[in-house]
Amino acid sequence: MTQYSRILVSGVAIVIIWAWLLGSCLAQDTLSSFEGISAKFTAANIAYKAQDYTRAIEGYEAILKSGKESGAIYYNLGNSYFKQGELGRAILNYERARRLMPRDADLNFNLQYVRQRAGQDTVQSEVLGWGAVRQVRWATQREIIWMLVVMGGFIIAGHLWSLWGRWQYRLRRVVIGILVALWFVGATALVVQVQAQDNLAIVFTASEARFEPHPDSTTHFSLAPGARVHILKREDNWAKVERLDGRAGWIMQSIFELI
């Protein structure tokens, strides 16, 4: 076996090990086909179909309490809350589902519909410019992270390939430069999404934000069920929240949950 053949074999071995590790991590990351969880999910779906929404909600919540989540659970939970007339909680769960399956057409339709029912579409239309860009979700955080890892692998492979293949310096610089630039675009998207979702909460009952953290304080603005707010700080039972149009006020901590 020549020296180059040995190097080639070593390279292939490294790639195989990397692929194996990648697959292992993915498998660990996605805990599919849990028998008990699947059974609970099916039972909750049956309850939903029987229009027993309370039992359906209990079933979906039980799965979540076991430490596992999926987009479908949040979606079905949102549907169940909607059927019970709790629009705020429905929107909250649809938003949570959107973290995990942002491109799901059914989910986006339901979310838009429930928002309209809750009077939230007007507030959404107020968000313009950079704020609107931040709200666009085309991929989950996991997808972006994996994309960055794979791209990182491509950059490394490309670099080594360019070295072994004796590419011209200029060609190597262009190819690696493009790959690195793409990687940074992906990383920026990830940072933007993480920042946009940081401390983002949904108000699930209609309420009024006040100027001060006190029940007798003057009302500043109203929040409809399902209103999306950023939590700025917490104080006792109160939280200072910022509406998407930039207006800030104090609400009780018991009326919202983080997405």
């Binding site: 999926s70 987009g71 659970i73 549907n79 339709f109």
Partner: peptide, 15 residues
Amino acid sequence: DIVFIKAKSGQFYPR
């Protein structure tokens, strides 16, 4: 009305 529920649970992730 809203679209019906999902029949498949999809992939589970650690919450």
